[in-house]
Write a protein that binds this DNA or RNA. Structure first.
Length: 250
DNA sequence: GTTGAGCGTT
């Protein structure tokens, strides 16, 4: 997204990714592009967004074609105040598909195991990650000490629930309206391409959510009495027809 | 209208 027209990750290899941190939640790729393009050829700008709400997560990735230009951007743009916030610009350290990154340059894909060992520090995944919620649901052992990692996850969960409550209100239009004075070209493309991205199955889709009713009927035969009786009825009728035929024959 | 450490997209 926001790859200047294309979809999916652009030319992954031999680009230099900058991690732009601490940008405003309303800053778009359009706002960033002229700033970064001044220092070199910007191949792509990507702002990760919340899966449901589509809101910016507050950071961005800017890919340069050439290392010296990326370095220049780091030097010139790190600490620059954009949209009222002092953004941090540095070389990205982790790749989108576990590529090996050296000074922000994607060199080659790296095995999963090595990628994991590289990120041993308790990195907090972003609050929108459904895998986190599954993890929380699965592991009931919340008895770990409330370190910063845990606290952050709790905070993220609370925020998530706040958002859930908000989106559950019937008169809620999930489409964010902060584009009223922003003419984000790339973000508008993104929004128009996937309008239902942040409006999940309109609250509760009944098909996807199988209510786990406790104490279900233990035998599978009892859960469809109508079908069962119909089958019995059909068998009886067949039997009667057979008898009738026999009677007619004799 | 809100948030604020962080590393990634059909």
């Amino acid at each position: 997204m926001s790859h200047f027209g294309r979809s999916g990750p652009p030319d992954i290899t031999d680009t230099y990714s900058l991690h732009v941190l601490n940008i405003s939640f309303r800053t778009t790729a359009d706002d960033l592009f002229p700033l970064f393009d001044k220092y070199g050829k910007v191949v792509d700008i990507f702002i990760p967004r919340d899966r449901r709400t589509g809101e910016s997560r507050g950071f961005a990735f800017v890919r340069y074609k050439y290392a010296d230009e990326a370095q220049k951007a780091v030097e010139k743009l790190d600490g620059r105040v954009v949209d009222g916030r002092e953004m941090t610009v540095q070389f990205a350290k982790y790749g989108p598909n576990a590529e090996r990154i050296h000074k922000g340059r994607v060199i080659e894909p790296v095995p999963r195991s090595r990628y994991r060992s590289r990120s041993r520090s308790p990195r907090r995944r972003h609050r929108d990650d459904y895998r986190d919620r599954d993890y929380l649901r699965r592991s009931r052992s919340r008895s770990r000490s409330r370190d910063r990692y845990d606290r952050d996850r709790h905070r993220g969960r609370d925020k998530e629930e706040r958002r859930h409550r908000r989106t559950r209100s019937p008169s809620c239009s999930p489409s964010p309206d902060y584009h009223k004075d922003r003419k984000g070209r790339y973000d508008d493309e993104r929004r128009s391409r996937s309008p239902s991205q942040d409006s999940p199955p309109s609250r509760h889709s009944p098909s996807s959510h199988r209510s786990p009713s406790p104490r279900k009927s233990p035998s599978p035969r009892d859960e469809s009495p109508d079908r069962h009786s119909a089958a019995v009825l059909e068998a009886v009728m067949r039997h009667e027809i057979l008898i009738l035929l026999l009677l007619l024959l004799f």
